[in-house]
Design a protein around this nucleic acid. Structure first.
Lengths: 229, 229
DNA sequence: ACAAAAGTGTTGGCCCTACACCCATGA
DNA sequence: TCATGGGTGTAGGGCCAACACTTTTGT
């Protein structure tokens, strides 16, 4: 099987769709390109996969190098391989999506050349390469995943109020939810630990804070429990 | 951005997990390797991605070249990129899974050297490379997908009886289903067209045949309908 | 006549939906 | 005292699970 060594090969990259939540606004982390092609256009953070690292490692490395973001929820999304997706040469990209707690992760300023910045998903358009398509794919995946797996918590701070969680679901799923029914359902799952803390300094009744109990979730899942909505 | 042209690059392949259903037995289509490494071991059909074809095209091409199977339901599964997954050199594989109607697709005989053959999923073990892992991933995906999208029909003949459909669900999901409830639910969706035909030559009451109405499904989906179980 | 699978309805309980008012807090 | 979001219960309907016998056909 020596024939393999002679073949021309596509370049192989990773790209990351990084989601964050800011006051009920779903955001994306983008970087501005400083070189051609697509110079000055915004693009997904990403880059070449090294010979000694898995694709996921490459994604995490690029994410940290380009935006300073690390230690986040990261999952493979899809591999994009259209022949003409990169005008320079044949390039295949393994796309990942990440969920970050924006409160925890401060990102490099956008004012720097080549800096990173958060955009509302609705504003993230006309990106470099086929990144519009990748973003669209990621949004659909996030919507689907959120209904069937408790990953929304990855977008919230450790301690959050139920109304934050509800707003998150409303934003991502695109439908309003009934407050009483939402609370009943999510609390009935017994996945949230109520804390003895309430939010501080608000001009109305202070909300109780909760924390997602992931131990409990693992436990329930082993017993055949399936998260939904 | 000229640095890219100098870099060593991983080889890039596709692999296909091909599912078929045979009398209520879930099967996999494998090919026997004729070369090292893993000579004589069974493996997933697949091969290198060409410079002028997308990964999906490569998957379809390899599938036809190695097994004669074509025109099937095919979907991207996952991209496997562990550094040591190929002992020869760094190789990344974009895995696909396919669903074929075994009655329609006759496959090249396994007796040929390098031939293809169907294996029960439970027997498909000790495959070449990381193909055990790929198969396992595909089985999980199939299970998940089957519950939320009407793709089971891709494994059945055009005309099928409800008991075949039920057995399919039972096999893939691994749980017995109640006959009356199953029929009520699936018929209530109004996705199956009853035919004026019944099966022939059986030593018991002949079953009515049905056909999946995919036009109807597209229609319902545009109106917000979501298939489930 | 028997073996083997096809086909068919009802009931009880659970869950989901719809819906409106009082509470606590800071300004 | 007002504005703002936090927090709570119930009733009706639809959906799901459980369950057993009759029908048809070939041998």
């Amino acid at each position: 099987m020596t024939y393999r060594y002679d073949h021309p090969r596509p370049a192989l990259t990773v790209d990351c769709v990084v989601f964050g939540l800011d006051e009920g606004d779903l955001k994306l982390l983008l970087v501005q390109r400083s070189q051609e092609p697509f110079r000055h256009r915004w693009a997904l953070p990403g880059g070449l996969v090294g010979m000694e690292e898995s694709a996921e490692r490459a994604a995490r490395r690029e994410l940290e190098e380009e935006t300073g973001v690390r230690d986040v929820y990261l999952e493979q999304l899809y591999t994009f391989s259209a022949v003409d997706r990169d005008p320079r040469e044949r390039t295949i990209s393994i796309a990942y999506y990440a969920l970050v707690k924006m409160t925890d992760h401060v990102v490099r300023a956008a004012t720097d050349a080549g800096g990173a910045a958060w955009f509302s998903v609705t504003d993230a358009q006309d990106l470099a390469f086929d990144h519009d398509l990748i973003v669209h794919t990621a949004c659909e995946r996030l919507r689907g995943k959120l209904r069937y797996q408790p990953i929304g918590f990855e977008l919230l701070p450790e301690k959050f109020k139920l109304s934050q969680l509800q707003r998150l679901y409303e934003v991502v799923l695109g439908t309003p939810l009934d407050k009483r029914n939402f609370r009943k359902k999510i609390l009935a799952m017994d996945l949230l630990r109520p804390l003895d803390e309430v939010e501080q300094g608000v001009a109305h009744r202070a909300a109780r804070l909760y924390r997602f109990d992931s131990r409990r979730y693992q436990e329930l899942r082993r017993r055949g429990f399936n998260f939904e909505l």
